[in-house]
């Protein structure tokens, strides 16, 4: 609805545009593959945000963790080009997890050691990671045959994540695995209990004998691992090389995704897939139907605002107030 208003403002034939978006998102196995590829980094980084959310911690550092993960991954893959394909893929993914984990861990250490708010540190770390990568891809690891473009050499084809059956990229399967891991972590382990009790309040957690600092650190580390994996999976599943325009803001879209998923593993998975299909549909349709790319961002932002409004029992509170004011009692 909101989307069609924006489209109408821009003078786009709304009906045709909707048709085109659906077509580009689902229309063929090629379209489905592209949508899933789009969903991979968004959903993967959103899992990290989800775990942090449950601990009451805001991981706004997805962007930096993606860059750190992709950097570690591309360094390992280009450095070990003699290794056979499957092993190289595994090593690339692990490197990404370590890179992202380090970046998330820094924010975790700053939080638990020094008490710095992760809201500020993760954002600052995003910019630091971006500029470090920007420096590296214009200097030490720039592709010598790249005509001066700010990117690295392309990774060898054997390190590309395979696509199964023409439409299911391996990254999408990793998403399902990650969703299971997050669910088990949160619902079936002692660590999950620690995370959730931190989320219900630091004082409560401390009282219950929880090592609050250690849990806070671990949570941001785990979030970073997912962010790094998002970077590596995108590098190996789609981009092929690291550049300083690698991520178009996946870290923040991941935060929105986790919000829409309401902090659960399955919710995040579903939300991430939906956003992947939506933004691939819009990107694909933009040339055909004249829809601007930023429509996806607007839609997601507005949708989340809407969800917050609905989620916070606003309607319920308003009704209760109205009811009690009728009775002359202050709610």
């Amino acid at each position: 609805m909101v989307g069609s208003i924006f489209l109408a403002i821009d003078g786009v034939d709304v009906g045709y545009a909707m048709q085109e978006i659906l077509d580009q998102a689902f229309g063929s196995s090629f379209a489905v593959k592209n949508s899933l590829i789009e969903a991979v980094p968004i959903t993967m980084v959103a899992f990290g945000v989800t775990v942090a959310f449950r601990a009451g911690i805001f991981n706004l550092g997805g962007e930096g963790q993606i860059y750190a993960g992709a950097l570690a991954s591309v360094l390992v893959i280009l450095g070990l080009s003699g290794v056979p394909g499957p092993i190289l893929i595994v090593l690339g993914l692990i490197a990404g997890m370590i890179g992202g984990g380090i970046w998330g861990g820094i924010a975790g250490a700053l939080r638990s050691r020094l008490g710095l708010s992760e809201i500020i540190t993760t954002i600052m770390l995003n910019f630091i990671a971006f500029w470090i990568v920007s420096y590296l891809v214009r200097g030490p690891i720039q592709d010598p045959d790249g005509a001066g473009y700010p990117y690295t050499k392309e990774i060898p084809a054997k390190a590309d994540l395979p696509v199964i059956g023409g439409s299911i990229p391996l990254g999408a399967i990793l998403l399902v695995v990650a969703a299971i891991v997050v669910w088990v972590l949160l619902e079936r382990t002692r660590a999950g209990i620690s995370i959730k009790s931190l989320g219900s309040g630091e004082a409560t957690g401390r009282f219950a004998g929880l090592r609050v600092e250690r849990t806070g650190f671990a949570v941001l580390l785990i979030a970073g691992v997912f962010g790094g994996l998002a970077g590596a999976a995108s590098l190996m599943g789609n981009e092929g090389r690291l550049s300083d325009f690698f991520s178009p803001g996946w870290g923040f879209i991941g935060v929105m995704t986790a919000l829409i998923g309401r902090g659960t593993a399955i919710g995040t998975l579903v939300a991430g897939l939906l956003i992947g299909f939506l933004s691939n549909g819009i990107t694909g349709a933009q040339s055909a139907a004249g829809i601007p790319t930023s429509t996806a961002q607007i839609l997601i932002g507005v949708f989340v605002l809407f969800l917050i409004i609905v989620n916070t029992d606003v309607v319920a509170t308003a009704l209760r107030r109205a009811a009690s004011s009728l009775k002359g009692v202050r709610g």
């Binding site: 923040f252 601007p292 930023s294 429509t295 961002q297 997601i300 932002g301 917050i308």
Partner: peptide, 25 residues
């Protein structure tokens, strides 16, 4: 509406980023 202050802020930032880029085009 007692929405989480931080979450609202992040959503607004994303929405404004989208809307300004959209309107500029």
């Amino acid at each position: 509406l007692s929405g989480d202050q931080i979450v609202v802020g992040i959503a607004l930032n994303l929405a404004v980023l989208g809307i300004t880029s959209f309107l500029a085009r």
